[in-house]
Computed example of a mutant assay.
Amino acid sequence: MQFGTVATARASTAGPSTAWTSAAARTPEGWRALPAPDLSAYLAGGGTLGPDTALGELLPHARPIAPLPSPAKVVCCGLNYGEHIRETGRELPTHPTLFAKYADSLVGPDDDVSLAAGTDVDWEAELAVVVGAEIRGADRSTAAAAIAGFTVANDVSVRDWQYRTLQWFQGKAWDRSTPTGPVVVTPDEVDPTAGLTVSCRVNGEEVQRDSTATLVFDPADLLAYISTFTVLRPGDLVLTGTPGGVGTARDPQRFLADGDVLETEIEGIGLLRNTIRLTD
């Protein structure tokens, strides 16, 4: 089943319609409300995602926005596809390479990605895992059971800042740099270990394509490993890494320009379409 956060409007007899947001489920009839303003609040409050989730009113004129606007933790894995590892000249890792973002870095499925002019901006299509239950020190089976669903992300990276030091953080956590959405799809509908196609396009040209079946560390592996050193709670996000084809590894290198349209798609989940804005 598909869930998300939507922007909608409610008609009012006293004046203009009132804009608001709601956690919601996508049904054949349209989006139906869940009892929270967004999926972050819904999951943090004990809500669950699945075919038995109780649904509320039909929401007219709803459109998906960032599904999880306020995760407590956004943990990301780098170097997790074999081809991408090879193009960076590294060996296959024995442990996940992790870094963090803040909620401020997240934007929605059709929002602009706004960054500073003069920076080297690169694309990184990724599967993101949504945590649905609190876990600490989890084994693989417990971690797998704690997955609420999956969504699409692009870990847009500012490479010249990323490579200023051996730590990547300053190139990965820019405000409004990480598109997510458009929906969260539950594990009964998609199975990344069986293989979902991940692709990325720039102005219509495909620059990345791979299958999640080739992940070195799959979603359950990552959640179990991360939970060893920090608790994961409902609504947290874990990004699983990007396939080969990034701009910084090309010869010559290629980076995103102002006005470029970045499309990120994962089979069975959906499509992000974001315009790059580089401003002074």
Rank of each mutant, 00 (worst) to 15 (best):
V107Q: 03
T94C: 10
L98I: 11
V6H: 01
L256S: 00
L237N: 00
P16L: 10
G244M: 13
A11K: 15
L232C: 03
L272M: 07
T214W: 12
G149I: 07
Y42E: 00
V129F: 02
A224L: 05
P93I: 13
L92G: 02
W174Q: 12
V129K: 06
P51C: 08
A249P: 04
P16G: 05
T119C: 07
D251L: 12
L43T: 06
D120Y: 08
P69E: 07
G78N: 08
A14I: 14
I226G: 00
F217T: 04
T97M: 15
L196S: 04
G137V: 07
T264C: 10
L262S: 00
A148D: 05
T264M: 02
A220V: 07
S22K: 05
A144C: 10
T197K: 14
N80D: 05
T230I: 15
G149Q: 09
L39T: 00
A249L: 04
A213K: 11
A128I: 03
N203C: 04
L232H: 01
T248S: 14
A153C: 14
D155Q: 11
T212C: 05
P109R: 09
T94E: 15
T178Q: 10
F150C: 06
L106W: 03
D110F: 06
A194P: 05
L43Q: 05
T5E: 14
L59I: 15
A44M: 13
P16R: 09
M1Y: 02
V129R: 03
S17E: 15
P51Q: 15
E189M: 10
S12N: 15
S40H: 07
G204F: 10
G235Q: 09
T240G: 03
S227L: 01
